[in-house]
Design a binder for these strands. Structure first.
Lengths: 226, 226
DNA sequence: GTCTATAAACAGATAGAC
DNA sequence: GTCTATCTGTTTATAGAC
């Protein structure tokens, strides 16, 4: 078995520290190996906690899985901040503002999804849920996925001069996000093909550059349509 | 456990039929549940074959996994045909031809990745390999991934008037493919958000339309650069 | 709250009958 | 080539000591 080199090695010390350590360890392991392939022993050992504590804190493996989903929602909402929790996008926002917001959001998403280590864990965890939905998917879908997509659609509609709930708008937003996600999930292939050893700040900047170029190009073409 | 509704229910009859039935069943199950979460008993039962036949034909679970990777390469090369196995893209191909080829390739990729059921299994299988590479990834990477990407880069370079091995070219091709892959892996979220019950021919056409629009828009913008 | 011991089920591999 | 029986190890969940 390969050695485990996780960043979530928080040892259990104070009260409820065990709880958090278990969630962090479980998130990494569920993401990397999947729910069923992950054993509670492995989680407890990674979290430097006891096996019995999983039953105590979460009722069992399944409860721990649900807690991971909740943790993901809280983490993303914590990072996204007002970008997600702020007031609705006003319909009379100047288009230049919408473009600027879209660009900054894409830059932040690349930073989180592609460059940050937690991004990888979270993306993989969500991917597994999308492939085989459980109750955890609802938590994540309504917690971050739908609000994020709605917000991006609103910005895109203003920036491109289209309707925020038009099929083309929603699908285009999916393509914008999809291209970013791919750099995380296909990271192994991208690295091989690009000759990159790791995907750090420099590589992320190159990805942002291409993503920004694409955004502007598609936006310009959509504007011409109307 | 959820009922298994696979298209790969070929019963074992003639000689070597067992072999193929096992590969098909394993591919579906490995893709859906992952390597470790899939039991050899489950595979044998789905393939309507005996457990012992896995050891006989493939030496064990791992050999069956490797055979699945080989099967994926053969399947894709069979579908892609001359688009993958044909002669190299000549550097003096007319740009309009390159654009037309790119558009038709994207259309075919959407058809396979998004709409065909085997597309889902294969994408998921490859995704798991990318997340946690084994020997199977090498088979797939050198069998289809790298040749496909190289070919798309060559076409893109001609169509956009850039260098086929420039970083921007290779990254742009990744974004073009990435946006398509996302519609498969994020299918559950896309369906929910779009209000689609399934993703069939009609929905695939809408995706092709957006992907084609993006392709043309980015291409037009890249051409203006030079 | 944390830990150990154990129970009941299930895994992959294999040997050998047919 | 196919199938059954069985071995050895590992899984989750639980009961109860501390």
């Amino acid at each position: 078995m390969a050695a485990i080199s996780t960043t979530a090695q928080t040892p259990a010390t104070g009260p409820d520290q065990t709880r958090l350590a278990l969630i962090r360890a479980a998130l990494v392991l569920f993401a990397r190996n999947g729910y069923e392939a992950t054993t509670t022993r492995e989680i407890a050992s990674t979290a430097k906690a006891n096996i019995g504590s999983i039953a105590y804190h979460f009722g069992g493996k399944e409860g721990l899985h649900a807690a991971c989903a909740q943790h993901i929602v809280e983490t993303i909402r914590g990072i996204a901040g007002e970008a997600l929790d702020g007031p609705d996008i006003p319909a009379d926002l100047p288009p230049e503002m919408a473009v600027a917001l879209l660009e900054s959001l894409i830059e932040r998403m690349v930073g989180f999804i592609v460059a940050r280590p937690e991004g990888g864990e979270i993306v993989q965890f969500v991917l597994r849920e999308l492939n085989r939905p459980t109750a955890a998917l609802n938590t994540i879908y309504y917690g971050v996925f739908e609000p994020t997509h709605k917000r991006l659609c609103a910005l895109w509609a203003i920036a491109s001069g289209s309707e925020r709930d038009a099929d083309a708008t929603m699908l285009t937003v999916f393509t914008l996000v999809g291209q970013l996600v791919y750099f995380r999930i296909g990271r192994e292939a991208v690295s091989r093909r690009m000759g990159w050893k790791t995907i750090g700040a420099e590589e992320a900047a190159a990805i942002v550059e291409v993503a920004r170029f694409n955004l502007r190009a598609i936006l310009a073409a959509r504007r011409k349509e109307t």
